[in-house]
């Protein structure tokens, strides 16, 4: 299955849900924010959100800001 993560195409073998994918990619729980197909996806929904082919995910981390 192909997914788009932060604009880059990735081939995913194992992950079934957003929660699985975050773990597979090495993101620490509690330190990311996610949007799916341009819409906000709440943290509580990561485990129940099943990945679909070509899904477009935005995964953001805290960063210094002005």
């Amino acid at each position: 299955m192909q997914v788009l993560v932060n604009g880059k195409e990735l081939e995913i073998a194992q992950a079934k849900t957003v929660s699985d994918l975050l773990q597979e990619l090495g993101y620490a729980q509690g330190s990311v924010a996610v949007a799916k197909n341009g819409e906000f996806l709440a943290r509580k929904d990561y485990a129940s959100t099943v990945l679909e082919d070509k899904v477009d995910l935005e995964i953001l981390l805290p960063m210094q800001g002005g």
Partner: peptide, 8 residues
């Protein structure tokens, strides 16, 4: 603070 795309 802000949020950005970053490598895990």
């Amino acid at each position: 603070v802000s949020l950005r795309r970053q490598s895990p």
